[in-house]
Amino acid sequence: MANTMPIEYYQQLEEIQAVDFVIDELVLYLDTHPTDQNAIQQYNHFALYSKQIKQKFEESYGPLQKGSVNIRQDYWAWSGPWPWQV
């Protein structure tokens, strides 16, 4: 009896991974091209978008990283699946 997460969990997680990858790439690019306004605009767009999808993910599946807001007031929401179980 497999105990796996719903498909949306993986879809949202992949979306977060893709967006964060783009952010990392743009950070490295902008370090050497500080005046590239298009890249800055794209970076800001993805940075905001990343915050939104992470918030949406955390509301339904629990905290993503240390320091995330604990959704539930009555219970410490750090429970599985742990990253290595995903």
């Binding site: 893709a18 990858f21 783009v22 790439e25 690019y29 050497t32 091209h33």
Partner: peptide, 22 residues
Amino acid sequence: GFQSPNLEQFTPQEALRKGTLW
């Protein structure tokens, strides 16, 4: 050499799999 601005990019999902944004 030094990367020129506004190079063609992959989509985020594609970039994640290909390992680079450009």
